[in-house]
Amino acid sequence: SEIVVAMYDFQATEAHDLRLERGQEYIILEKNDLHWWRARDKYGSEGYIPSNYVTGKK
């Protein structure tokens, strides 16, 4: 599975969105859409994140 790191904070506005915290790692579950990826955080929460807010883990 692909691990990404959040470059920016993202506040979830929709129920299906996942909040991003800058510097935290997330697991990508689905990339069915170019701009919104389904991800899981370290607490096990899942939701959609803006793909341009994250970068591949170095």
Rank of each mutant, 00 (worst) to 15 (best):
H35I: 12
D33C: 14
L20D: 00
V54Y: 02
W37F: 05
H35P: 05
T55H: 09
A15C: 14
H35M: 11
K42E: 06
H35F: 13
L20H: 00
R22H: 08
E2D: 11
P50Q: 04
K31V: 05
L29P: 00
L34Q: 12
A12Y: 04
A39D: 02
I49W: 02
G23Q: 04
A6I: 02
A15E: 13
G44T: 02
A15M: 12
R38T: 06
E30Q: 08
R38Y: 15
D41V: 01
N52H: 14
Y53S: 08
L18F: 05
L34W: 09
K57S: 11
V54G: 00
E2G: 08
D17A: 14
Y53F: 13
L18Q: 01
R22I: 12
R22P: 05
I28E: 02
E46T: 08
I28S: 00
V4F: 08
E14C: 15
I28K: 00
S51P: 08
M7D: 06
D9V: 03
P50S: 03
T55W: 07
G23S: 04
G47E: 01
L29T: 05
G47R: 01
K58T: 14
Y43L: 07
Y53L: 13
I27A: 08
F10C: 07
S51D: 03
D9R: 02
S1A: 14
I27F: 09
K57N: 10
L34N: 13
G47T: 04
H16W: 14
W36Q: 07
G44A: 03
N52K: 11
K42V: 09
I27T: 11
E46N: 03
V5F: 08
G23P: 00
I3S: 06
G44Q: 04
K57A: 12
L20T: 02
V4S: 03
L18V: 03
R40F: 04
W37Q: 02
R22E: 10
K31W: 06
I28G: 00
Q24V: 06
S1Q: 14
V4A: 06
F10W: 15
L29R: 01
Y53P: 02
W36M: 07
I3P: 04
Y26N: 00
L20A: 00
Q24R: 06
D17K: 15
W37Y: 07
L34M: 12
D33L: 07
L34G: 12
P50Y: 05
L18N: 00
G44H: 03
K42S: 08
D17L: 15
D9N: 10
I27D: 04
G44E: 02
I49A: 01
N32T: 14
G23L: 05
P50G: 03
Y48A: 04
E46W: 03
E25G: 04
E46F: 03
T13Y: 10
G56M: 13
G56C: 14
R19Y: 07
R38Q: 06
Q24P: 01
R19Q: 13
I49P: 01
V4H: 05
H35L: 12
E25Q: 09
I27N: 04
G44N: 05
Q24K: 09
V4G: 03
Y48H: 05
Q11D: 14
E2R: 09
T13C: 15
S51T: 07
M7W: 07
G47V: 02
S45L: 12
D33P: 03
E30L: 06
Y26Q: 00
Y53K: 08
D9G: 04
H16E: 11
R22S: 09
M7K: 10
S1E: 14
D41I: 02
G23M: 05
E30W: 08
T13S: 10
